[in-house]
Each structure stands twice: as C-alpha cells, then as structure tokens.
Design a binder for these strands. Sequence first.
DNA 1: ACACCCACTTAGTAGCAGGGAA
DNA 2: TTCCCTGCTACTAAGTGGGTGT
Length: 801
Amino acid sequence: MSGDHTHNDSQIESGSRVNGKSILGPTLFCIKVSECREHKVQIAVIWRRRMEKLGDPIRLPVAGCEQDAHKHKDKHKDKEHRHKDHKKEKERERSKYSNSEHKDLLEKKHRDKEKVKQKDGVDRHKDKERRKEEKMRSLDGKPKKEKENGFASPPRVKSEPDNDGFYHSPKHEKLLKRERDDNDLEFTPKKIKVENDKKAKKRKLEDEEDIKPKKKRKDKKGDVADGKKKGKKEPEEKWKWWEEERYTDGSKWRFLEHKGPVFAPPYEPLPNKVKFYYDGKHFKLSEKAEEVATFFAKMLDHEYTTKDIFRKNFFKDWRKEMTSEEKGKITDLNKCDFNELNDYFKVQSEARKQMSKEQKQRLKEENERLLQEYGFCVMDNHKERIANFRIEPPGLFRGRGDHPKMGMLKRRIRPEDIIINCSKDSKHPKPPPGTKWKEVRHDNKVTWLVSWTENIQGSIKYIMLNPSSRIKGEKDWQKYETARRLKKSVSQIRAQYREDWKSKEMRIRQRSVALYFIDKLALRAGNEKEEGETADTVGCCSLRVEHIKLYPEKDGQEFVVEFDFLGKDSIRYYNKVPVEKRVFKNLQLFMENKQPEDDLFDRLNTSILNKHLQELMDGLTAKVFRTYNASITLQQQLKELTSPEENIPAKILSYNRANRAVAILCNHQRAPPKTFEKSMQNLQTKIDAKKHQLLDAKRELKSAKADAKVRRDEKSKKMVESKKKAVQRIEEQLMKLEVQATDREENKQIALGTSKLNYLDPRISVAWCKKWNVPIEKIYNKTQREKFAWAIDMAEEDYEF
DNA sequence: ACACCCACTTAGTAGCAGGGAA
DNA sequence: TTCCCTGCTACTAAGTGGGTGT
C-alpha cells in the first residue's frame, strides 16, 4: 500500500520558547530509530528500548541530534505580492522531534457524494415540532436508533444531577424536548432535520458495534417523570445525551436561558499611602491612569516588562488614558517608578494567603454562589455548566512569542459591548442597573451565550458551554467519528498523494507534498496570518523556504529534510526527517529561485488543500489527520506497550508512555516546571539516600550471614532472613524512585494534557482500562471524566478506533 | 481568488487548593 | 502544624475552517 514510508528518524531535544519564558536547556534526550516503516512501530521501539533501561534516564545520545542552540531567523519580506517587512530574530530552545508514518489497513470506503454535513446538507426531514413534542411527552422512552455517530433516540425527558429547578421554565419544557423517534422524522417537515435515512442506516451498520450505547434503557423510566427534578435523589444519574438524537438542521438548540456574564470587579483606587513616582517625585495619578499603571506594576517581576515592544505598547496605551496634564508630564516610561505599587500588590497577595480559615471559607462560598447563579444555563431542558462565565478583566495583553501587540491595553468590557444570545421565550439576562446590552439576539445556529469584540485584534470573544455539555460533547464525538472514517480511507488517500507527487501540475505536486507532511508529521494546516498583527508563526501550508533545509545525505540517511520553524504559540518545531526521494526532489523544485522568505508552497493554501480533502472524503480537513494519527498511535502504542503480567502502576506507566508518544508526535511542549530542577534534585537526594541505605543493608546482611555461619543458631538465621528482606524492600523502593525520576525526566518538556484532551479518542483509553482492569480514575481526573462521560459510558473493552 | 468575518477548537500557563512529608 | 509539591482549573491566546461578498 501506499503508506509505506520507509524510515524515520525522530528526536527530542530541549529548546526554548521564543518569548524567553522557558528555559534554555541542554539536550534532554534524543531518540533515533531508523528503518521503521511506520511511526507507530518506531515509537514502540523507542519505548521498548526505554523500558529495558528503566531507571536509566532516557537520554539516548544519538548521532545527529542537534545540541547547538538554534538560532531561528525569520525574515519576512516580500512574499509573492504582498510584502512584509519584518525581520525577526528568534532564539528558542525548545525543541522537537518526531515523526510519524502510518499505514493502515485499507478498506476502501467510499462515502456517498453527499455531504455529511448534516448541518446544512440534507434537509429533508423536518419535523413538526409541536406534534412531536406532544407525542414525546406522552410516550415513554423507546428504543432509539443510531444516528451518524451513534446518536440514538432518547429518553425524552432528562434528569440531571442537581437542580432544584434552577432556571426551570416549565412552560417551555414541552417545547424543548428533542425528538427521539425517527419515525417522526418523515412526517415532520419543520425544524429538526435528520440525516437522510440511507446514510443513517448505512452508518449504523458500519458503526454499530462500536458506538451503540450500551445501557440505554436504564434510566429511561425515571427520566420520564420530569428530568429536572430528579437530580437530587440520584446525583449519579447523569443525562446521557449521547443516547439521544442530534439536530441535523444546523440548529444548536431550541431553548436557551442564562443569566448573562459576570463582569470584572470595578477598579479600586490605591490607598493614598501607595505612591507612584515619576522622575523620583511623587505623582498622584488620575484614577484611569492609575488603573492602567497598576496593570504594569503587577507585572514588574515578569520578563514581559523588560521587553521593548511591551514597554512601548504599554506606554502608548497608557498615555491614552492619561489626563492632558499627566500626558504633559509623564513622557518617559523609564522615569516611572512603580515599585511601591508592586510592593503593595505583593503584600496584598501575601495577606490573601494568610487569611484565616473562616475568611477563606467565606470567599469560597461567595465564589460558589456566583458559580451557582451564573455558571449554568438551561439549554433544551437541561442545566448545563458554562465554561467561562466571567468577562475577561482589563489588563495588558500578553501575546505569546514575539507578538507585536504585547503590552497593549486590553480595555474593560462594559455591558454596552456585550451581545447576549438566548431564546426569545427565555427570561433574558438583565444588564447591570443603569446599563444596556449592546444587543440581544436569538440565534440558535450558534452555541454561544454571550459575545463581545476584543480591542487588541478586533476578534470576537465568546462565552460558551463547558466541555461536559451536550453541545460540546456531540461535536467531540463527531470529530472522532470523522477520524475513524479517515482510518478507512487513509490508505487510498496516501496512494493518491503519492501518485500526485509525479503530477505535471505544480499546484498538485505542492498539494501532495504538503499533505504528506501533514499526514506523516502531524503538522497543522497553516492558515495565512495577517502580518504585523501576530507573532510570526507558520504551519504546513505557510512554511517558507527558510524553514526547511535539504540534505541529500545526512547522518547516514538519504534525503533528509530538516524542519525548523515556530508553530502555534511560537512553539518551535524542529525535526529531521528522511523523506522519499520524490518528495525530496519536489522540495528542491519548489525552492528553486526563491528567497528564504518566500513561501515554500506558493501555489497552495489551506482552503485549496481542504477543498481537495473534502473531495477525498466527506468532512475531511487537514486537522483530521492530526486527530487520526494521534488516536491510531495511542491505540497502537497501547497494544505494543501493555504487558498482561504487569501490575497496575506499570500499566499506567505504559499508558503514559503511549500518551507521550502522541504528545511528541503532535509537538506538545511545555516549559519545564519552575520547580523542576529542584524537585529533581530532591528526588535524586532521596535516591542517593536510598542507595546508601541499600549499601548499609547489604553490609549488615553480609555480617549477619557471617555471624550465622559461625553461630549456626536459629536466632542468627532469622536475623539473616530479616536482613535479606530489608535489602529486598529497599531495592524495590529504590527502583520505584528511579522509575519516578525517569518518568518525570521524560515528561520535563512534554505536555500530555493537550493530546489527552483534544486528540485521543477517549474510547480507546476507556477500552484499555476495561481490558486491563485499570480504574478509569487513574487515567482521567474528574473533569476529564465529565468531559468524556459519553465515551466512558459507551466504550467496551473491545472498542477499536 | 481573494479578503474578511465568524464560530469554534486547540494550546500553554499562572495561580491556587489540597494532600502528603517533615 | 507548617511546608512543599503537584495536579487541577481557570483563563485566554492562537489556531482551524466555513461562509460571504466582491
């Protein structure tokens, strides 16, 4: 099949982020594996190797690992027709490494031409809502049918964990129920559309085993009575939205009621004794100017405040808030002394820490009250948690990387800036006394409750629901279903792009090479960005010539491409990958007659690419490859790494390693924890102490043995036994500590959370837990379990991604 | 073919709470 | 009891990708 990539070479090394936040570090570890056909295998090899050396910090020195600090230079100039005048020097130390290749069984599956976008696509079934509702009301839960991703018809009324009628709007209840019976669809031309039957059936067949909810009936009965009330009694009984149908007409809800956002607390002027000095002299600032000054003062210890751009932007915006008198006087930021302000805030935060138990308790309760009041909404008859119900407070913008706007003033959001979205027939949130909302709208085609426009980039910010909500969960589930569909057609797609490497058309060659990178290396799509508005970062389609280097031969491998660029969040991507000759030749071609700052793929952008992908498979976009490759890698790795005889902690270690393989693939980095060195040192101290202890114990054992030899009595024999046990115990403890150290070291710069939360089909993890009897709590914490409730409920141990 | 807008997902980190070690 | 550490959560920036209008 086509996916045969020949070999890979991956590495991980340390590096630093461009904004200087993270530490420059020495090479942490390198991995190199050659001659692997698939990256899954490759990673498995890596880990196996590591496991053999357990206890050995994973530092596999490898030829070809770059240890040198990398200088990252981005020059941005004339790109095609637009130009840029931008130069950047970056120095990063975080690094990167890895790559992937995959090959899957193929099972060619061609999807119907129709779009699956059930949102807008098929819309032939409509419903008569009312009728249905009535009907539903009178019916009981019935068998459901599977829908595209297994959504089935549901119980009709739901129950929720708690809620004493919070926001209960009985009068709407009937209107809110969602359909549960497919049969209705045929007759209901009104609102809820459902994907067309054929498709549904088909998919049903395909996916049935995997997705079918297993315990659907269980709570139906109860639910029927009245969803909202029951929570109290059976807090465990959560609403299983995944057993219900989805809207397929593009609407996101029928009913939405909430209390609006919580605004940032108003500014509290500083006490008089806290003084700001300009040019050595006390200067009393106006309230507005003072507020902005405090934003800066609070950050004094932060590196941001040493950066020129930050200071310049801050000062410019600060001056806008000044009175004309202040403006006249305060003309040089360097003459400003914010130290007293800074000290004041430090004292405050210290005081906060020192608060008595009762005070803390009170604070906590107050927070809880706010949460209860504003932290939930009612969406379609269910109380759902809101993710971010607080409006972002004013402050100084902290862009990541070399952000041209860092330090600018993020202004305070007022009710007049806020757009509220809710149902017409809901109780609308009230603006604070004496104020008005900018607008109240009733758009059920979107999921947000509140929005406003932010002043730094002019983008829109939203208040939306928590990941545990139905609306987010459905989407998440759907995402993994799309990735699974890709699994079925990936081999064909790979064959296709390999074929396209030979195309006569430049644009097709570029497209196919880019796709190869996206697939093999899990690169992001790489939308274009507006220059000067954001940090200079790139993804696949926006790579520039300066971001790659070609080596016909390097470190004993042929056709090596070296990537070195800043990706999302200005995280450096550094990797050296052997590629196929054709790819290599194509790259040479793409680079011909270009300047370093020119686009590598000048005939390609994400929308062209995605349009093409869309033709290959419904719903396919560049990011699906990341999801697919991440999940398939996890599954593969778990198979490779888990050994049945291991105990639970060892299994968890295996899981973490599988997870880590994915994190490496996706380049999920983190700054080494601030306390990393120290805590590592502590651990090392413990290890050393343990080693000494072990030596002592061994010595004692030896002398006990000698003693026993001489004395030959029971007592001394027993002594020998007990010394033996002691040695054993200490050895185990030592081993444990060393494993811990290894694990921690391996994780120093790798963030597992992002992949766990966004890329790994949770059903894989759930199935793995079930299969090996690992409690799910060991893998997912409470929040994560809430987010993945659907997967936990439906995946059985034989689940296959 | 674009530029722009909008909605929504993905991302790393600051700061804190809470649990265990000293 | 205090201290220390770690994991979690909240926060918000920075991506992706669809749609629209020209």
